[in-house]
Design a protein around this nucleic acid. Structure first.
Lengths: 149, 149
DNA sequence: TTGATTTGGTTTTTTAATGCAACTATTTTT
DNA sequence: AAAAATAGTTGCATTAAAAAACCAAATCAA
């Protein structure tokens, strides 16, 4: 009667959710993107129970999304930072943020704005594009068996 | 001691997770994108407990992500379908799927391929783009206060 | 350099959520 | 008309989350 695993699904969405499909897990990743690196930093920011935080951090490290390294060699204090695999969640996080901007806060009420460092301009809305670069919607896309089907 | 609410955070990621940040919720949405419309359809596909499914469907309807309409007028059988707000989660779902394709299954082993109906070609990887259309990464972006700060 | 505080957790207890099975009332099929 | 499927609800056992207390190592403050 343990919580059902999603690994049985032959589906990348399910596999992804098995790893990051938890409120705290994704918020930890968000904080990591913003620059939080310490246990107490995450704890202060999120207000999550410490046992839950410890569990989620270990989970993220086990799945190679966060790196855990001693702050200085041979010392019992650690720094958490995103791996390449973790940084690859950037479009997922930004897409979620933009959805909340639009559908929860509404245009003009976004709490945070993601900008291009170079120009200082806000980033574009994340969209699904065709090979030629045209925006696609659920209506103009279909699902075919992949190579690993 | 109810499960902590994320609504206190002034953050679109947290607000989004408060609504869809649950394994089953996001899988229901995925199924809805693929065309599942009935209670038993979701149940068969996901193998989720019926009480949990009932709870999550009600939650999604309450948040205007799914519509629940009688299959025929005056009848006790319902059809669930994505609202505009629900369909707006398309980039989030595709970004998750692509992350799993790359980092869990690996290139060449994707179980499902999303294609442009017109051309039959796979869609592009979802990326964060600058105003001028250049791909951006966590390193080349920054977070500024938004208009609703 | 001693004492206080912070860090990075672990342990324990309580409470809420999940999973499972059985049950019901319509609706559809045979 | 009977059987099967649909769309749930109810009740119970188990598990995971929340809260708080606890602890050792590291750092800061006097």
């Amino acid at each position: 009667m343990t919580r059902t695993s999603l690994t049985k699904f032959k589906c990348s969405v399910a596999q992804t959710l098995e790893i990051i499909g938890d409120k705290w897990t994704m918020l930890i990743i968000r904080d990591a993107f913003v620059g939080v690196t310490t246990f107490s930093g995450f704890q202060r920011n999120l207000g999550v129970a410490r046992n839950v935080l410890a569990d989620r951090l270990a989970h993220l490290v086990a799945h190679d999304i966060l790196d855990r390294t001693p702050t200085r060699p041979g010392i019992e204090r650690h720094t958490y930072s995103l791996t390449e695999k973790g940084r690859a969640l950037f479009p997922v996080m930004i897409a979620m943020m933009q959805w909340g901007d639009t559908w929860i806060y509404g245009a003009g009420h976004e709490p945070v704005c993601v900008v291009d460092k170079d120009s200082g301009m806000p980033v574009r809305p994340v969209t699904v594009l065709s090979e030629k670069g045209h925006p696609l919607s659920p209506d103009t896309t279909a699902y075919a068996p992949g190579q690993g089907y």
